[in-house]
Design a protein around this nucleic acid. Structure first.
Lengths: 131, 131
DNA sequence: GATAGGGCTTCCAGTTAATGGAAGGTCAAG
DNA sequence: CTTGACCTTCCATTAACTGGAAGCCCTATC
C-alpha cells in the first residue's frame, strides 16, 4: 500500500509517516520505483503509534511501548510502569493548568474591559502575584 | 545591574534574558566593557515577562501585553481580550488532558502489571480505543 | 606582576515532533 | 503525449529556550 492510502487509513499525515521512518519507528519495504510499500504489520504499528501519540505519550515512550508491543515475552508490568509515569505527568500538567486558570480568571473577572486604561490584569502581572 | 544579579532578582536564567534581548523584548544599555547594564525599567519588564510566561502566555502574547503595559492610553478591554483567549486555550488543554487521563487510567486499572505478557494497555492501543 | 576564579560576551548547535516547500521522478487517464 | 495526482529526497522552520565552546573582563591573592 502506498503512503497516501496508509495516511488515510491510520489518520496520520504522509509527512509524519515519513518522519516516523526517519527516526526508525517503521521500516517499510520499497517498490522498484522507490515508493514505500507498506505491509499489514506497518499499518498496525502506525495505528498503534497514532493512538499512543494521541494519548500524549512522547515519541521515546512510543518507541519503548512499540518494542514491548512486539515482544511476545514482555511483562505487562513494564508497560504499566510507563503508562503510570505518563499518567503522573498528565496529572501534573492538569494541576499546573488549573493553577494558571485560577490566577488568570481571577485577574480577568476584576478587569472592567472597557475603554479606560486602568487594568487589573496588567497590574497583577507587574505586581506580586497571589498565586 | 549585571545580568547575573538580574537573573537572581527576576527568577529567569541569564540565558533566557539574553534570548529575550535577542527577540527584542528588552533592550538593556551596555557598559563600556560590553556588559549589559540593566535599569529599573528593564527589571520591571523582565518581572512582567517572567510572570506572564509562568501563566502560560506565549512569547507573542507577552510582546503584545508588554506593549499594552507600556501604553498609558491602552484600553483595558484589549488586555482582557488577550487574557480571555488565553483562558480558553487553557480550558481546551485541560479538557484534552482529562480525556487522555480517563482513557489511560481506564487501561491502567485493567492491567495486572505482573510478569505475564497479556497486557490490556497494549491491547487498547492496538485495537479501537473507546475514547 | 602573574595567575586563578568567576562572570561576562558572542555564536553555533540541539531540543520536540513534526510541518512547509522546492525540485524532480512516476503513473494512469484521456 | 500531455496533464495532474502521486511519490521521492532534502532543506528550512516552528517555540522557547538550553548547552557548550572560545574568549574577554575584573578582582583577589601570592
Amino acid at each position: 500500500m502506498n503512503i497516501g492510502d496508509v495516511a488515510d487509513k491510520v489518520g496520520l499525515p504522509a509527512k509524519t509517516i515519513r518522519y516516523y521512518e526517519d527516526i526508525g519507528l517503521v521500516k517499510p519495504l520499497r517498490d522498484n520505483n522507490g515508493y514505500r510499500a507498506f505491509q499489514a504489520n506497518d499499518l498496525h504499528k502506525l495505528t498503534f503509534l497514532a493512538r499512543a501519540r494521541k494519548l500524549g505519550f512522547t515519541i521515546e515512550n512510543c518507541r519503548a511501548l512499540l518494542a514491548l508491543y512486539e515482544d511476545q515475552a514482555r511483562a505487562s508490568s513494564d508497560v504499566k510502569t510507563i503508562a503510570n509515569q505518563h499518567l503522573e505527568q498528565i496529572n501534573a500538567k492538569i494541576s499546573d493548568l488549573m493553577a494558571m486558570r485560577a490566577t488568570l480568571s481571577h485577574l480577568v473577572t476584576e478587569c472592567a474591559g472597557d475603554n479606560r486604561p486602568d487594568c487589573p490584569i496588567l497590574n497583577g502581572l507587574s505586581e506580586t502575584l497571589a498565586t
